[in-house]
Write a protein that binds this DNA or RNA. Structure first.
Length: 838
RNA sequence: GCCCUUGUGGCGGAAUGGUAGACGCAACGGACUUAAAAUCCGUUGGCCUGAACAAGACCGUGCCAGUUCGAGUCUGGCCAAGGGCACCA
């Protein structure tokens, strides 16, 4: 008998799959298309078991869909620009390109292929290759030409460790997303932005179309975009006629309670309207506020700060004179950068007014009477102290006051979003250059399409990790002729956020080798949207929001015809393990020193076993803890199949069994039962891998049960009847097909020994024999008062009356009925009889 | 503070409102073996009655209520853990 040697057979089949290109889809095939995708990985070097999960889940889905008759696109590539490569260059003097390409080679050939994944490598894209980033630049210029890319001077998030600015989405808790130990600093800088806010409304509304996304992800996006309805109210200033201050509020109903205004410290009007004697103090405050890190500014314990400008504003509703302040609790880039202070009905305003002893006027009250407020009253109520609006409900008051503002010209209804424009400039070398040129005569000039890509210089680059981007120091690269007037000009030295590269890679896969255009419109419309996207929950906002934005913008540029890129999204949970460093179970990662490498395990027990364990440990969305013991358990399962197969091969004539067996002809009861289990397995596994469930752990459990049942059946058997051989062959044939997406190598190997045609991965997914699932007998559960009393086997299909009679005739029931009154009997046919007594 | 998710044996986890604990890990027992490993076959929620590895009772899905003939599953409240947002006017 052969021994199960996973390393050998896995290597054998991986080579053959590669050579025969069996995972290659056909553009515009007549089979229905299916686009299966896993999130663009960063080639960080060595993969561990934690990384394997996403690839395994996606691979099972891809393989299953191929067998189910779909034309499956399952591509792979690398998000290859980024900081780690540049840091490696600084620390180890290896050029970023070399480091990156070496990692990609290792990851692709030693890890992804060894896992048994089924990618079409002919469509591979690598974002740091000029063939790719030419299109990144081209797309940037489309945004620029459509007024969706612009520069502005703004307070930005600066990570001192990364030595670059960050987008809002890349700041977590005031820290850099890559360095949870580094406070983000605030700087005023002129930077490039993409106008994602122009799509805020559509991005929020179209979430409703995404029925294939988990609610939690949609909710996170919704909160991030943060739509709010309110009004813009314009305040004029006492004695300064040429300046007006618009504020945004969600509570126009509290307009009569405004006792001061607050501007953000960076607000451009501040110095203009400050009275001379306050100028010094105000300037000092602005400077102080600018120095605060994000974490200081957000600190909960932080007391409110601010200084008065000495300027007086006039409430347009009632003419009341109120002071104007600046305070850092007003944010420049939300609303209008100015707030109307209503201490009676806003917690922050209340704290501010208390600290600086400002007036507090209650205008909403639960009972229409003024109260002694110890805190802001933020509940709904009846309007008071509000002139003509007194005694009406505040919700109605909102509309009425907006109506009056519009009529009198001091305001209007307005919708605001928490979402900010996407800051895409990065002061780093290893990224895609922004293809623009600064010319003294022509101003900003886009690099013409024919000159794309603007190549990253590779010679004479010095990586020091300080003093700004290395690109700033490469004179021969910076100095160019203006494409318009041919005079001396300079290149933009900022590179793009790498999230730009990953915002369209999934579109490029549809036509990855096209060197004439970013992609052919017909091909992109054929393959997209992605039918099943698999990736980590950490991208719930970042990558997924950016990609949705890109899809919508590209649609408006006329490049494609759909609104949403990813129809179904599966967010897999992380893989954890005990970390000796943190002394607890934590996410598997090199820095926590709790990684299990792939190579050793694959060598010893095989990728098939690792795949099975990862799928078996829990449903995909849940977290799993890696257990080498548990993975060995799955190895044992595969060995069990292996031995069963070759034992039977020696004892009986094994041959593939196609089609069904006539159940009525199987007289032996255990054999009929085995046939039933085999068919039940086909049914259950098919349901579990379908997109209605995606519950792979139960699918594997069902297959284990089938193998257990076969072992039990052949126990002590020396010879086999023809019927038995048929049922066993039926069971094995279908088991191999069902297991093929999960454990692709061992099934391919056994399929070959079985005389099956290459490849098992190209044969149709099995269907089950309905007639086999019909049984003559059922297990009837007898309950009294909802508690199980007895279980008995009886004929199927009996009437409610008959079942009730059977139940009441049971000795156990009779005994318990003594001295009790029978209230009623509930009968669920073929299932349960519940006897209710008093 | 607001929003979301999750609480089931020693562990990971199963259960269209209808037999709680499938399947696996760990543990224990048996067979095989000179022996061990491997393998094959079993046992394994708690507690109690019982001479019993006969039979059986009771309790049990974070806690407290409710709906229902019947609740791990539905509803409300509480507790705990995890995640997201957090001076967004």
């Amino acid at each position: 008998m052969f021994q199960y040697k996973p390393k050998e057979i896995e290597n054998k089949w991986q080579k053959k799959w590669d050579k025969t290109h069996i995972h290659k889809p056909v553009d515009f095939d007549n089979k229905p298309k299916y686009y299966s995708l896993v999130m663009f990985p960063y080639p960080s070097g060595d993969l561990h078991m934690g990384h394997m999960r996403v690839y395994t889940i996606s691979d099972v889905i891809s393989r299953h869909r191929r067998m189910s008759g779909f034309n499956v696109l399952n591509p792979m590539g690398f998000d290859a620009f980024g900081l780690p490569a540049e840091n490696a260059a600084i620390e180890r003097k290896i050029p970023p390109k070399e480091w990156t390409l070496k990692n990609i080679d290792h990851m692709k050939n030693q890890q992804l292929k060894r896992m048994g994944t089924s990618y079409d490598w002919d469509r591979e894209v690598i974002s740091c290759n000029p063939e790719y980033y030419r299109w990144t630049q081209w797309l940037f210029l489309q945004f620029y030409k459509n007024n969706l890319a612009y520069q502005k001077e703004a307070p930005v998030n600066w990570c001192p460790k990364c030595q670059t600015v960050l987008a809002n989405e890349q700041v977590e808790d005031g820290k850099c997303w890559r360095h949870d130990d580094t406070d983000v600093e605030r700087k005023m800088m002129r930077q490039w932005f993409l106008k994602i806010t122009q799509y805020a409304e559509e991005l929020i509304n179209d979430l409703d179309k995404l029925s294939g996304w988990a609610d939690r992800v949609k909710i996170m996006q919704k909160n991030w975009i943060g739509r709010s309805e309110g009004a813009e109210i314009v305040f004029s200033l006492d004695g300064i006629s040429d300046v007006k201050i618009p504020v945004y509020t969600t509570r126009p109903d509290t307009l009569y309670g405004v006792t001061y205004l607050v501007l953000a410290p960076e607000h451009p009007l501040v110095l203009k309207i400050t009275v001379p004697e306050n100028k010094k103090k105000v300037e000092e405050y602005i400077k102080q506020a600018g120095l605060l890190t994000e974490i200081d500014r957000l600190s909960e314990t932080k007391e409110k700060t601010g200084v008065p400008l000495g300027t007086i504003a006039i409430n347009p509703a009632n003419g009341k004179k109120i002071p104007v302040w600046i305070a850092d609790y007003a944010l420049l880039d939300y609303g209008t950068g100015a707030v109307m202070g209503v201490p009676a009905h806003d917690t922050r305003d209340y704290a501010f007014a208390k600290k600086f002893k400002l007036e507090i006027i209650q205008v909403i009250s639960p009972d229409g009477k003024e109260q002694n407020l110890n805190d802001a009253y933020i509940e709904p109520g009846i309007m008071i102290n509000s002139g003509e609006f007194n005694s009406i409900n505040n919700e109605e008051g909102k509309k009425k006051i907006i109506g009056q503002a519009a009529k009198k010209g001091f305001g209007s209804a307005k919708i605001s979003y928490r979402l900010r424009d996407w800051l895409i400039s990065r002061q780093r070398y290893w990224g895609c250059p922004i293809p623009l040129v600064y010319c003294d005569s022509c101003d900003l000039v886009p690099v013409p399409d024919k000159d794309l890509p603007v190549l990253l210089p590779e010679k004479n680059i010095e990586f020091t990790g300080s003093g700004g981007s290395p690109l700033k120091k490469t004179a021969e690269w910076i100095n160019v002729k203006c494409p318009k007037c041919n005079k001396d000009a300079k290149r933009e030295t900022d590179t793009m956020d790498t999230f730009i590269c990953s915002s369209f890679y999934y579109l490029r896969y549809a036509d990855a080798t096209n060197d004439k255009e970013v992609f052919d419109k017909k091909k992109v419309n054929y393959w997209l949207p992605v039918d099943q996207y698999v990736g980590g929950i950490e991208h719930a906002i970042l990558h997924l929001l950016y990609s949705r934005f890109f899809t919508k913008a590209l649609r408006d540029f006329g490049l494609l015809d759909f609104d949403e890129p990813f129809t179904n999204l599966l967010s897999q949970g992380m893989v954890t393990m005990f970390s000796p460093k943190e002394n607890k179970v934590a996410k598997m990662s090199k820095s926590k020193r709790n990684v299990v490498g792939t190579t050793e395990f694959f060598d010893e027990h095989g990728a098939d076993a690792a795949r099975l364990f990862i799928l078996f440990a829990a449903p995909p969305e849940q977290e799993i803890e890696w257990s080498t013991q548990g993975a060995i358990g799955q190895y044992r399962f595969l060995e069990r199949i292996w031995r069963l197969f070759f034992n039977l091969k020696d004892a009986a004539a094994l041959h593939l069994y196609e089609g069904f067996i006539d159940v009525r002809a199987i007289h032996e009861l255990p054999l009929r039962n085995l046939y039933r289990i085999a068919n039940y397995t086909i049914k259950s596994v098919s349901e579990d891998v379908s997109d209605k469930r995606y519950i792979f752990n139960t699918a594997i459990a069902r297959m284990t049960e089938l193998v257990n049942a076969m072992y039990k059946f052949i126990l002590d058997k020396k010879s086999y009847t023809e019927d038995e051989i048929n049922v066993l062959n039926f069971s094995i044939t279908n088991l191999l097909k069902l297991l093929a997406p999960f454990a692709p190598h061992i099934t391919e190997e056994l399929w070959e020994h079985y005389g099956g045609k290459y490849s098992i991965h190209q044969i149709p997914w099995p269907s089950f024999d309905k007639s086999a699932l019909i049984t003559d007998e059922i297990e009837l559960v007898i309950q009294m008062g909802g508690k199980k009393i007895d279980v008995l086997t009886t004929k199927k299909g009996q009437s409610q009356k008959e079942l009730e009679k059977i139940a009441l005739n049971q000795d156990k029931v009779k005994l318990r009925l003594e001295g009790k009154e029978l209230v009623k009997v509930v009968v669920v046919p073929d299932k349960i009889v519940n006897i209710v007594v008093k």
